[in-house]
């Protein structure tokens, strides 16, 4: 296979009469930071949900590290609609649940923060390590997994140190300020040991200073953890600064792709999303 880590192929997601994602094709190479932008309701988060297994696409496939992990073909009523449109290429209904996708090496954050509210910062990150634990329920209950548990705790300590949350590790997750909660969500995703990190609007609701810090933080963890990052974002400062490439969605359709400079000068993108003389 080529060196792409994620490939989305002819992915369509239809809810009744609404086509939220329409025949999306994109490729992300190893080590890149790629952004997915577009106006509200363009289908960005739906695309994320298809990739991570939350939704089963109506048609299309997703490849991860050279393996086809998700595949579906139009069935029932949808069959007619897809006559002659890639519909025949896919023959299996391959739909792993999100936890299986995460185990393959893809971890995500959410648009609206979804931390475990009654848990401390430390436990939030430690729980994400559960999917990498090899102990079964009996060995875990009777503490036969002490070595693994100690290792996990140590690596969580290290991770919190790296992301700068070590001083608040015993606080409740919800008692943190907003920016730190965002950071914790990223730390939690990192604890699941992904190769590909998906960030859904990581800077939503942040002020300019917090956004700058986050920009540096994302670049920093990409290097430290050898990650590939795929993100959805509305803060153009952040997107234009750190992205290697950008995909633009509008009404579910891909309208442009390219480097930040190319996107900034693309007529269709300006009309649909960026606008003129506006410092987003």
């Amino acid at each position: 296979m080529s060196d792409n880590i994620l490939k989305v192929e002819n992915a369509t997601m239809q809810f009744g009469g609404v086509v939220a994602v329409d025949n999306l094709n994109l490729e992300i190479n190893e080590g890149e930071i790629v952004a997915l932008i577009g106006p509200n309701g363009a289908g960005k988060t739906t695309a994320f949900n298809v990739v991570t297994g939350v939704y089963q696409p109506t048609n299309g496939a997703v490849w991860f590290q050279g393996n086809k992990i998700i595949e579906n073909y139009p069935q029932g009523k949808m069959k007619k609609l897809y006559k002659g449109q890639h519909g025949g290429e896919y023959t299996r209904a391959l739909a792993p649940t999100p936890d299986k996708v995460t185990k393959l090496g893809m971890a995500r954050t959410f648009q609206n923060i979804r931390l475990w509210k009654s848990q401390t910062v430390f436990d939030n990150v430690l729980i994400a390590k559960h999917c990498r634990a090899t102990s079964n329920v009996l060995s875990a209950t009777f503490r036969l997994n002490r070595k693994e548990e100690a290792q996990q705790r140590q690596s969580v300590e290290q991770l919190l140190e790296t992301v700068g949350l070590a001083d608040v590790k015993n606080e409740l997750a919800t008692s943190l300020p907003y920016g730190k909660q965002r950071r914790l969500e990223i730390a939690r995703a990192l604890a699941a040991e992904p190769q590909l990190l998906l960030l859904d609007e990581p800077a939503a609701g942040m002020n300019p200073q917090e956004t700058d810090e986050l920009t540096a933080f994302i670049a920093d963890i990409r290097n430290k953890f050898h990650l590939t990052v795929f993100l959805i974002e509305h803060h153009m400062n952040l997107v234009m600064h750190i992205s290697d490439r950008i995909y633009v969605l509008d009404f579910g359709k891909l309208i442009a792709e390219g480097t930040p400079a190319e996107i900034q000068n693309n007529k269709r993108v300006i009309d649909a999303y960026l606008g003129v003389a506006e410092d987003a």
Binding site: T52, V54, T97, P98, D99, K100, T102, K103, A107, R108, F110, R114, L115, W116, I127, A128, H130, C131, R132, R188, A189, A192
Partner: peptide, 10 residues
């Protein structure tokens, strides 16, 4: 939702 996204088989 978060639990499933973090690899916990519901």
């Amino acid at each position: 939702v978060a639990a499933e996204a973090m690899g916990i088989n519901l």
